[in-house]
Nucleic acid binder design. Structure first.
Length: 578
RNA sequence: GGGGGCGUAGUUCAACUGGUUAGAGCACCUGCCUGUCACGCAGGAAGUCGCGAGUUCGAAUCUCGUCGCUCCCGCCA
């Protein structure tokens, strides 16, 4: 008995020979006694046809019964197709004249047409996800992601890293994201949490002498979703002992270089670097998209002497006048539209200054003189968009993006960027502090930090890797000194008891000594999505959740039985719905 | 928690200011068809207008509530 061959392996060597294929039926065309279709297997598509005249009755009856998405085995002779007939499917230059057909499975009529998946409603696609995944485009995204994972493993193994698993059922530590909690049967009334990341455990591994660790780890965070965020997601998690951040940057750059090489893509090294402060100042974002060349500038000094009350009030109130200069003139209605969009983002208004045929046009034109205009050294056909405000980065960021799109900034390149020196803490809005990365991040200047009483702007050794405006990775050099760690916990408002309660095991480990260490974690689905130019990660996950965190395919979350609850010593108290 | 968009046949959409029996493409079913590849032609079946109230002589359409999908803000150490 002859062996099956895969569509991708079809080649001239099989011409005029009998081959056996397995797969799914797509796009049937019946023309009397001729029946054409595409046969699709896991590797591609090829056209096949059956001619009634040359078939035995049994095969003919099977061909007559054939429906789209049926699962078959077929035997036939491989033929070359005339040049003018070839199609852009995987093996367009070939076709198979079938002689035998076995209908392995004839399922129900499909819930939608696979080829039209792009326009099918998300809820339908998700409910029949296994079916949607037959679509070539999504199928290939899952394949692509698998390749990325493979290359990452290849890279780290080649560099002598150990892949070590850490538990998913761990102790709940309510810092950071909300935990998914898991009740314990043996310890009734107590709970595990699903790991938000392997953070503390990988740090402990550093203390165990595993100096080069990596893991492709699932992370669970019970927070609201976005198109680039799922409640469970996979990270490449890595950590090394005796290392500083430049070495981590080099390692990750070298890893991407390897991935790009395997994908036959070009990549320039090293990646650009920018401090967090610069990123906010020039791009109003801690993850700037460098494909957009527009920069934000501070124009306070130009407005210092103009006689407009609301401007002076705002400047006295420590608000800033920041703006973006573009080499284009905008119509009144375009500007009105932009102002409307900005207001939706929370802006209180929009000022513009432009120069057309040496004539200046400024929103507050009647309140300013020549000196004001001269201070800008504006060229003809340029327009500056101003925003007045404080902590209005989201508005400026929106404006920069919008103007970038209007001016047609490139969508093609891969612009990697390290954003460094994130602040150690952020104000939490109620007089306290919260960790801006996580509480295990080392300050840059430890002695200075240990002496401080005020913690607003302490630069830390935390860094992000940004690609085209999307955060791909986040990491830091960690604290490995007990006193420093305890002081961070203090600043976060945790008293001694709480520290021991939540992180006692970790503080103990520190007492016995953790080497200096640091690492980083990269979102795998995001990498795959970004490399293909997608903003949503959903298609890179075989069975994703909806934006409410539900799974329409399996209908989770769902109720559990009385018995299950009894086993766990649980009772449903307050609840919404049924 | 807040804001925007959406929900009508298996599916994608239409149905004006409320007004006869809610339409169309694709898919599906039947028949014809030897080079199709968005095959073509003829015919057919197919609907709890997301769900629940309300207004009205009359609701897919208006009002209120509710559920779901999606995008964004908050949130995501």
């Amino acid at each position: 008995m002859k062996e099956r061959i895969f569509v991708e392996n079809i080649n001239v060597g099989y011409l005029e020979k009998e081959i056996i294929l397995y797969g799914f039926i797509e796009s049937i065309r019946k023309l009397g006694s001729l029946t054409f279709f595409y046969l699709r297997d896991g590797t591609g598509k090829v056209q096949a046809f059956f001619n009634k005249e040359n078939l035995d009755e049994k095969t003919y009856n099977t061909v007559e019964k054939l429906r789209v998405e049926n699962i078959v085995r077929m035997k036939g002779i491989l033929k070359e197709r005339p040049k003018d007939q070839q199609l852009r499917i995987t093996k367009g230059e070939y076709e198979i004249e079938g002689s035998q057909l076995t209908l392995l499975v004839q399922g129900d009529v499909p819930p939608f047409e696979i080829e039209k998946l792009d326009s099918i409603n998300e809820s339908i696609r998700d409910k029949y996800r296994y079916f949607a995944l037959r679509n070539e485009k999504i199928h290939n995204k899952i394949v692509f992601r698998s390749k990325i994972t493979q290359y990452i493993r290849e890279y780290f193994y080649s560099k002598d890293y150990l892949e070590i698993e850490t538990p998913y059922l761990i102790k709940s530590t309510p810092e950071g994201a909300r935990d998914f909690i898991v009740p314990s049967r043996n310890f009734k009334g107590k709970f595990y949490a699903l790991a938000q990341s392997p953070q503390l455990l990988k740090q402990l591994l550093m203390g165990s002498g595993f100096e080069k660790y990596f893991q492709i780890a699932r992370c669970f965070r019970d927070e609201d979703l976005r198109s680039d965020r799922q409640p469970e997601f996979t990270q490449l998690d890595m950590e090394r002992a005796f290392i500083e951040k430049d070495e981590i940057f080099e390692e990750i750059e070298s890893m991407f270089s390897y991935i790009f090489k395997r994908l036959d893509l070009k990549l320039e090294l090293p990646f650009e670097r920018m401090t967090y402060d610069d990123a906010l100042e020039k791009y109003a974002s801690d993850k700037p998209d460098l494909r957009n060349p527009l920069l934000i500038e501070n124009y306070n000094i130009h407005f210092k002497n103009i006689e407009v009350n609301f401007i002076q009030d705002k400047l006295r109130n420590n608000e800033n006048i920041r703006g973006i200069c573009t080499n284009k003139l905008f119509s009144r209605s375009q500007i009105k539209k932009i102002e409307g969009l900005l207001k939706k983002q929370g802006s209180s208004g929009l000022l513009t200054l432009s120069k057309d045929n040496d004539e200046f046009n400024f929103t507050l034109g009647k309140f300013v003189d020549e000196k004001f205009y001269e201070s800008f050294s504006l060229n003809n056909n340029e327009t500056i968009f101003f925003q007045v405000g404080k902590n209005n980065e989201n508005i400026l960021n929106f404006l920069r993006h919008y103007l970038g799109e209007q001016l047609g900034s490139s969508k093609e390149d891969f612009r990697f960027l390290w954003v460094v020196d994130f602040p150690l803490f952020e104000e939490d809005g109620s007089g306290g502090y919260k960790a801006s990365h996580h509480p295990f991040t080392s300050p840059i200047d430890i002695p200075a930090f240990m002496g401080k009483e005020e913690f607003s702007h302490i630069p830390s050794k935390a860094y992000d890797l940004v690609l085209n405006g999307s955060e791909l990775a986040s990491g830091s050099i960690r604290i490995n000194d007990l006193a420093v760690q305890k002081k961070v916990f203090d600043v976060l408002g945790m008293n001694e008891e709480l520290q021991n309660n939540r992180f006692g095991f970790f503080l103990d480990a520190m007492k016995f000594g953790l080497p200096p260490h640091g690492g980083i974690a990269l979102g795998i689905a995001r990498i795959a999505a970004m490399l293909l130019g997608d903003t949503s990660i959903k298609d890179f996950i075989a069975f994703p959740k909806t934006t409410s965190g539900a799974c329409p395919l399996t209908n989770s979350p769902s109720n559990v039985s009385r018995d299950q609850l009894d086993d766990l010593g649980l009772e449903i108290g307050r609840k919404n719905g049924n």
